[in-house]
Amino acid sequence: MAEFNASTKDLGEVSVIYLQGYLDAHTAPSLENTFSNLIEKGKYCTVVNFTELAYISSAGLGVFMAFIEKMRENNGDIKLSSMSDKVYNIFDLLGFPLLYEIYKTEDEAVNKFIESKNLEK
């Protein structure tokens, strides 16, 4: 069993990354790759689904720090969804809710993207 896995689902304009397992300094590079791949493909609207993430350390949090600005510069964003209380508490401790939009469900986060895209049009 892999310690950590990040899989991507393409919803047209919005991509959803599903995190699974333990995200630490060892597994963070794998998530970095996932983000880099999305950027290469020009996909800047990302929802990260935390439902199956069991653990996150600051190295994992760092990945979001590293990519958020790039996404926002390109009119996109990283929106986070479906966190367990345990994971949310870590984000909260570091003040991440001020920097990131965090939603209860993946749908909510995806809809936010679609709403804002519609407004632009």
Binding site: S57, S58, A59, L61, G62, M65, A66, E69, L93
Partner: peptide
């Protein structure tokens, strides 16, 4: 500044 270090220490 795209910085990520120091979070761990704070945690």
């Amino acid at each position: 500044q795209h910085r990520v270090g120091g979070l761990g220490m704070y945690l």
